[in-house]
């Protein structure tokens, strides 16, 4: 079964419908990117997946015993709270200093254990968040705009790190982003969200889809090759170009 699957979920706040009849599933080991403009319901979707919110209709199923590692959007750490990186990684409890050191290593920032969280640079902070998500050896890593506040080389390096993590640990990755050119090249599958699933498929397919172009224009197409990852399997295109919400197809791409 899928690691996590959402079936026909809808969420609205008052009269404002944020998500309408959204279905998606993540299989083990794949990198899935959800892209969408501001206000398209990306963050709401992620909150549903981690269990911070409940859908008004539809349902979310997790594989029994699923371990989720969650990397939030840039997190505000109040300067009145003194906390070392190691203490932060050990929350909410149960991890050894050795496990913390190993997770920092895997996230590409070894040796930060004794630093104060408030003294970290933006890039270091995001990697510490990544290390925290990795510490319990998750089956699924969820990233919410995890490179906000990083410059372009910084986010490119961060995404390379994510790919490396996937290679080493085999965990599935679901990330949410608006940084299309960087994210899409690293993904196995892209889901284009705008309140509903507009289209879905391999990066090349989605970036060529008219629904996607209508939302994002064609400007990012040329940057797709920024760092394409080097395995040449193929995906089936499932994007229905004569698109309407009720007839969209929701099967996994492979």
């Amino acid at each position: 079964m899928s690691l996590i699957a959402a079936e026909n979920i809808s969420v609205s706040y008052g009269a404002n419908t944020v998500l309408r009849d959204v279905s998606l599933a993540v299989e083990s080991g794949e990198i899935v990117t959800v892209v969408g403009p501001n206000g398209s319901g990306k963050t709401t979707l992620l909150k549903l997946l981690i269990g911070a919110e409940r859908p008004q209709s539809g349902q979310i199923t997790r594989k029994p015993g699923l371990r989720i590692g969650y990397v939030p959007q840039k997190l505000h750490m109040d300067p009145t709270l003194p906390i070392t990186v190691e203490r932060f990684l050990r929350l909410p409890g149960g991890n050894t200093p050795a496990a913390c050191a190993a997770a920092l290593e895997r996230a590409g920032v070894p040796g930060l254990s004794q630093r104060q969280m408030s003294a970290l640079s933006g890039g270091q902070f995001q990697r510490v968040l990544l290390a925290r998500a990795l510490i319990n050896e998750p089956d699924l890593l969820l990233l919410d705009e995890a490179t906000q506040g990083l410059d372009q080389p910084g986010s490119a390096a961060f995404y390379l790190q994510i790919e490396e993590v996937r290679q080493k640990t085999g965990c599935a990755i679901l990330m949410i982003s608006h940084e299309l050119h960087v994210v899409m090249a690293a993904s196995d599958r892209v889901i284009c969200l705008n309140g509903h699933v507009c289209c879905e498929g391999a990066p090349e397919i989605v970036s060529a889809a008219p629904e996607y172009r209508a939302l994002f224009g064609t400007g990012t197409g040329g940057a797709l090759a920024l760092y394409r990852h080097e395995h040449d399997h193929t995906h089936d295109a499932i994007c229905t170009h004569d698109h309407a919400p009720q007839d969209k197809r929701i099967e996994a791409a492979e």
Binding site: K47, I50, G51, A52, Y70, P72, L75, L81, P92
Partner: peptide
């Protein structure tokens, strides 16, 4: 203590940890 501290740092991180 640990649950309080986690939810103080971030409510999303808390939810993701089952708190």
């Amino acid at each position: 203590w640990s649950a309080l501290l986690t939810s103080t740092i971030s409510s999303e991180l808390a939810y993701a940890s089952g708190i």
